[in-house]
Nucleic acid binder design. Structure first.
Lengths: 239, 239, 239, 239
DNA sequence: GGTTAAGCGAGACGGTACGTCGGGTCTTTTT
DNA sequence: AAAAAGACCCGACGTACCGTCTCGCTTAACC
């Protein structure tokens, strides 16, 4: 997962969370209904506090792990009142997710443009996929990413809403990059025309995640290469 | 994964956990050494309480979810003192893991013999794999199994020790069934002799788990079939 | 305490509190000195808000009791910003005190003139005192007055500043009415010439307040009468 | 109020509060009714914690005043969990009341016997009353007693339940001492046979409390003497 | 068969963190 | 320039559980 920016277009920061329900605006936009809970006014939000909260959350998760990261601790470290966290996020996990998305977005922006996240197309499909999968392997092994990512994945397994946000904002965009590259390969005749790109992607990414999540066997570049080789062999144009 | 019993041999119930370190006996067995923490005497353990704790834990996880399942709640529901839990398990997750293993073992026993957990070998590799993968899909979609399994998977992602126990006791035995079936197929000439059975298993199971964990797309029998077809195509003997 | 207006003369409304120090003007009047905290300009004060705050404060104390009456609640009910309260009063109790004084003043004005608050002098001292003490008893038993008065008394016990304001603005003027009536009686020869009017007043009022504050025994007209009889008997001209 | 022990008989310490409802056992003793909330088991109560809480509460009230004394602060100072306070008392004020009662009881015990709290009967009623009233004046002026007493009185004004407890445990026993002394005087012919002892007591104590509560004029021995003289003059036997 | 010692139900205890409330300050926009 | 609005930092609230620590009580195992 070489830190792709979460969407196809450029992401102007800040991207303020619209309300305490970390996610899309729950109110239909037809105005505050009778039962509508009074949402805070996002235009008055303190950008300073928002950044401090993100920084504190990421630092604490990295230092102490997710289980020992508390809302109270984040607030104290950020020099912020607890209420300022509860005003804008519904849970500790939601804070961390937004913090992580923010981190990804800034990293992508720093890398310059969105081109960095697209899978290159050198004409050699195997080489291109190996390049990206190896980068993903490296990222999964990097301590700085491992902590937050494991925490979010774990929370997403249990909490469907958060899992949906996680999948939508982080996972799917990545998978789509693979899908596009394989579609291009199909049009170029590098894989069988009947290939289902989505399934192909899952054949590549699924085993990788499986090892990472369950820590069954070490994640190496060699494993990434072997995966690509086997999958592409199965997808080769049939006679 | 149709509830295989965790080991190759018959498992006589009860299989009492030997100490508060949920796992193999940490003390060498040469008697309580000078610095050894006094472990409880497993022979005096109340089987009645152990079962009540398992039942309560599974019931509460199913009813309220893992996050709302507390040690205090389990103790109260089981009619047991808190200390009786802390005496035998180091954490809430360890209790749930043992409860789940117990459940699996009883289910396997009820199904009769250990043969039920081995992958059948009808000579048709694709059919055999589809049969088992479809069963796994059904299990993943079954609410009674989903709750505890998600909870354990999530906890295992974060807690390496528990994850190791989970992998070792539940996951690996299952994977080994696949490995043995594919090795048999290799010897029968049904797949390429250069096939790595372990990688092949991960190509089958990884995508399935990926969909289950991240809830990206629905888990269906058709998906299981497609997985088997694509993987076996890639493993076909290279003429 | 039949709602006497707080001073001997007519009180033209409004009587805006001059500054956030609820009390007499702390600034010497020579204008804002160099180190003087910048006080708000009372001439620009919104009479509308002031009245709304008083109404809200009294309503909330009556409805929910003093303990549950918050500055935030008063502001919300009055349709006023919190700062508008903090700008003009130093504490919740000060707001309530001013609100109560305002209520008293309006009640007195409504009763017409200031004569209503003076103790009548019919020539029969005992009858006059009984008349007024019975009215005081009735007021103490009236729920509408009991709530705010208890709250203010309680706060005054703890907070010396507020207690001084309370005593000065509400209590002393009442006591002075008694003092004047007893002085008149002394001049008329109805009580012993050596009588200390102040002490006499406290002998009448002290026991009444004692019962009210500590709720030891019921406050009745009979008790008021008995008090007057005993006290006057002790004050009777000595042969 | 020369620290009388709260009852006529000897008070064996400890006198544990029976439950979280600071007061007499609310359950009739007919067994736990269906709606009965589970009360803590007083026999397992930690005397050590109880004393530490009392000491901390009194120290904090004396040092910082009642308004700045928090449950959290008491718990921290006493080295006790907050829940241990909430388990046994319903409110901060109830803690302070029990702490104060405990203080009184210990002081009385230290003074030896219960005789110290009875009003002496030397045959000279005026002298006896002056002696006790002067002691009361001294106590009211003593800073160590003033803080907690004002706090409790204030809270009792607002909270009827606490006020009842305060009156019953502290005030009434004192008043009864006066009542008994005056009854003795009546039987001895020192006061008019028609005298109502209760009213006489309130004539003595009411004005004292009035000055103390409202801080109108200083509380002196001279005032105490004057009170006794005037009241006794009114009660003199009507020849 | 009586003693002893462990497991056990129960739950009080010192703590940590929760999520909420409100205090008092500050800033932005409106009147 | 005061006022309405409300976000902010902060402290305390009362609650829920944590994991530890006694209490009696029961129940073996060993005298």
């Amino acid at each position: 997962m070489p830190t792709p920016e979460p969407g196809p277009g450029p992401t102007p920061e800040p991207e303020p969370t619209p309300g305490p329900q970390s996610g899309p605006e729950p109110d239909g936009g037809t105005g505050p209904g009778p039962g509508a809970r009074t949402l805070p006014d996002a235009s008055r939000r303190s950008e300073r506090s928002r950044r401090a909260i993100f920084d504190a959350a990421l630092a604490l998760v990295t230092e102490n792990g997710y289980a020992k990261t508390t809302v109270e601790g984040i607030a104290a470290r950020a020099g912020v009142g607890k209420q300022t966290i509860y005003r804008w996020w519904p849970s500790r996990a939601a804070v961390l997710l937004d913090a992580f998305l923010d981190l990804q977005a800034r990293a992508a922006e720093a890398m310059g443009g969105d081109a960095g996240s697209e899978i290159p197309d050198t004409g050699d499909l195997a080489a291109d996929l190996k390049h990206v999968l190896r980068a993903t392997v490296d990222e999964m092994n990097a301590p700085a990413f491992e902590g937050p990512t494991r925490a979010l994945a774990a929370e997403g397994i249990t909490d469907p809403d958060l899992g949906a946000r996680f999948t939508e904002a982080l996972l799917e965009p990545q998978l789509q990059h693979y899908v596009r590259r394989i579609e291009a390969a199909r049009e170029a005749g590098d894989v069988d025309p009947g290939t289902d790109p989505r399934l192909a992607v899952e054949l590549l990414v699924g085993p990788l995640h499986h090892r990472w999540i369950h820590r069954t066997l070490p994640l190496t570049h060699a494993y990434a290469d072997a995966l690509v080789d086997h999958v592409l062999h199965g997808l080769a144009p049939r006679s």
